[in-house]
């Protein structure tokens, strides 16, 4: 039980000491698929937490389409060991903890500036695109333009980060979630795919990885699955969160299948590796265990 959080680390290659081939290494693409019954957002939160704690040099670019900043901020605060992380993110918080300043003063300042504090710290960049809309007139162009604009924002952020001497900090780009980007693009799959391909190119050029959350059950037919099969093709890690076949239980929230695709470089060939877990989501993290190993 105590070692259980490491199962996800192990499956994603995030163990300390392993630098290559993990989910947070250069050019790596992680696809998270979930369904209405079982949300996969907790994996996203886990990856954010790991990315920010990974030898404390990781940087996260978060495309928040599904929730406002406060949602993520609170969840991450509740995840274990995260207070110290946030203290690093917000030096003012540490000040607060030491009681250096009265609380009232602190909050007066907090109200308007949380995103700017992030930007000052340049560890967590949140693209707050919850209300992202592409204006409806002359639809196709506006969608294209909007996505190009979004991409160029990401690109410039990545370039700014990597131009800084940050000891080659690893940048993770997270998208929560892609299906909403599709809705914002009014279903024009080509544009979304173009956007993704640009992002993928970016990850291979810079020290980046891309983590995408998408829903599996919204693509019913073969034609509709085009986007999903593209994603599956591109991804190095495919994580599926599914409900249990027997329905949801109080102590098992669902099952997780992590597929690590085989790679072949420099004559080294590694085969596909799939691992299957049951999971239970908690406020301070997630418990993973092998099916049947917990009674």
């Amino acid at each position: 039980m105590n070692t259980s959080p490491h199962l996800l680390d192990e499956a994603l290659g995030l163990m300390p000491g392993i630098s290559n081939g993990g989910a947070l290494s250069q050019g790596c693409i992680v696809l998270i698929e979930d369904s209405v019954e079982t949300s996969g957002a907790f994996i996203l939160h886990y990856i954010v937490k790991r990315a920010l704690s990974l030898d404390s040099s990781g940087i996260v670019l978060f495309l928040a389409l599904a929730h406002p900043f406060s949602h993520y901020e609170r969840i991450l605060r509740k995840l274990a060991n995260n207070l110290s992380r946030l203290c690093e993110l917000f030096p003012k918080m540490a000040e607060l903890r030491q009681g250096a300043r009265p609380v009232t003063e602190y909050f007066a300042e907090w109200k308007g500036c949380n995103l700017s504090v992030h930007r000052e710290q340049k560890r967590f960049h949140l693209f707050d695109i919850l209300q992202l809309e592409f204006p409806c007139e002359s639809k196709k162009d506006s969608v294209e333009q909007g996505l190009v604009e979004l991409y160029s924002k990401i690109q410039s952020a990545v370039e700014v980060i990597s131009s800084r001497d940050h000891s080659r900090a690893h940048i993770s780009i997270l998208i929560d979630d892609l299906s909403i980007l599709e809705i914002a693009a009014h279903g024009s799959m080509d544009h979304v795919l173009n956007f993704l391909h640009y992002c993928v190119t970016l990850t291979s050029e810079q020290n980046c990885s891309l983590v995408i959350l998408n829903h599996e059950d919204i693509y019913p037919d073969i034609e509709g699955r085009r986007l999903l099969s593209h994603l599956v093709y591109l991804a190095d890690f495919i994580i599926k969160a599914e409900p249990l076949a027997t329905g949801i239980a109080a102590d098992v929230h669902g099952q997780l299948t992590v597929l690590k695709k085989g790679t072949s470089n420099n004559g080294h060939y590694s085969a596909d590796k799939a691992s299957n877990f049951h999971f239970q989501v908690k406020e301070h993290g997630v418990d993973l265990f092998f099916p049947g190993s917990r009674c």
Partner: peptide
């Protein structure tokens, strides 16, 4: 208010 204010420390009389 929730959007801009973290919960656990929200004992500021003016806001809470």
């Amino acid at each position: 208010t929730r959007a801009t204010r973290p919960s656990s420390f929200s004992r500021n009389p003016s806001t809470s």
